[in-house]
Amino acid sequence: MRNRLSRALPVAVAVLAAVTVALPVSAATASEPVPVSHAAPADHSTYIVTVHPGLDPADVAHDYGITPLYVYRNTLNGFAARLSPEQAEDLRADLVVASVEKDGGATATSFGPGV
């Protein structure tokens, strides 16, 4: 009996080590959430919603029944989500919301000497 246990233990340790290495890092350790694909009606555009400092943007989205594509807490305090025009207007009217902007492309412009 002792021989079987002494042989099984190294095999079990090797299997556990292999499984541990193969597992992905938990998304909970990421600083920003992983983007999630959400199907939305054609009239829904992606908006960036900024909420006032001290408020949790995920809670604001939840209060409106919105599932954010991203939640931002470092550079700005807000979230990105696909919203209907009505949802965007409702959020703009809420005092906890600082801004609601349609998501779009950005370009760099050079100002100064040598332009």
Results as ranks from 00 to 15, higher is better:
residue 95 L to W: 04
residue 50 T to I: 06
residue 36 V to H: 04
residue 94 D to F: 05
residue 37 S to H: 12
residue 55 L to S: 09
residue 82 R to L: 00
residue 66 I to P: 13
residue 57 P to R: 06
residue 78 G to Y: 05
residue 40 A to N: 13
residue 68 P to T: 07
residue 47 Y to V: 12
residue 87 Q to V: 09
residue 76 L to V: 11
residue 80 A to C: 04
residue 52 H to I: 06
residue 61 A to W: 09
residue 46 T to L: 12
residue 64 Y to L: 03
residue 73 R to S: 11
residue 105 G to K: 10
residue 36 V to D: 01
residue 72 Y to V: 04
residue 51 V to A: 04
residue 37 S to M: 04
residue 77 N to Y: 01
residue 98 A to T: 11
residue 37 S to Q: 07
residue 71 V to M: 02
residue 40 A to G: 11
residue 45 S to G: 09
residue 73 R to Y: 07
residue 103 D to S: 13
residue 105 G to L: 14
residue 58 A to C: 01
residue 102 K to S: 06
residue 43 D to S: 14
residue 106 A to E: 13
residue 63 D to S: 14
residue 64 Y to N: 13
residue 41 P to R: 15
residue 98 A to G: 03
residue 79 F to V: 04
residue 99 S to N: 14
residue 40 A to K: 14
residue 45 S to P: 02
residue 73 R to A: 10
residue 90 D to F: 06
residue 96 V to Q: 12
residue 63 D to H: 13
residue 54 G to N: 00
residue 36 V to C: 00
residue 68 P to Q: 07
residue 62 H to I: 01
residue 56 D to H: 07
residue 101 E to M: 03
residue 40 A to H: 15
residue 55 L to P: 01
residue 36 V to L: 06
residue 65 G to M: 10
residue 79 F to P: 05
residue 81 A to C: 09
residue 67 T to R: 15
residue 58 A to K: 12
residue 42 A to S: 15
residue 81 A to T: 08
residue 64 Y to H: 15
residue 93 A to W: 02
residue 104 G to E: 00
residue 58 A to T: 02
residue 69 L to Y: 11
residue 97 V to I: 03
residue 58 A to H: 03
residue 39 A to Q: 15
residue 85 P to W: 07
residue 60 V to K: 01
residue 70 Y to E: 14
residue 55 L to Q: 05
residue 53 P to Q: 10
residue 81 A to K: 12
residue 80 A to H: 08
residue 72 Y to D: 05
residue 53 P to L: 01
residue 100 V to I: 05
residue 63 D to Q: 15
residue 89 E to M: 04
residue 61 A to P: 03
residue 75 T to E: 12
residue 77 N to C: 01
residue 69 L to N: 10
residue 71 V to C: 05
residue 63 D to L: 13
residue 71 V to T: 15
residue 99 S to A: 15
residue 78 G to S: 07
residue 99 S to W: 03
residue 56 D to K: 10
residue 98 A to K: 13
residue 68 P to W: 09
residue 86 E to F: 05
residue 39 A to S: 13
residue 85 P to L: 02
residue 43 D to L: 04
residue 76 L to G: 04
residue 94 D to P: 08
residue 85 P to K: 02
residue 50 T to A: 13
residue 79 F to G: 01
residue 74 N to C: 00
residue 91 L to P: 11
residue 79 F to Q: 08
residue 62 H to K: 14
residue 57 P to L: 04
residue 36 V to F: 02
residue 96 V to C: 00
residue 100 V to M: 07
residue 44 H to S: 12
residue 81 A to H: 10
residue 106 A to L: 11
residue 100 V to R: 06
residue 80 A to L: 09
residue 76 L to E: 08
residue 55 L to T: 07
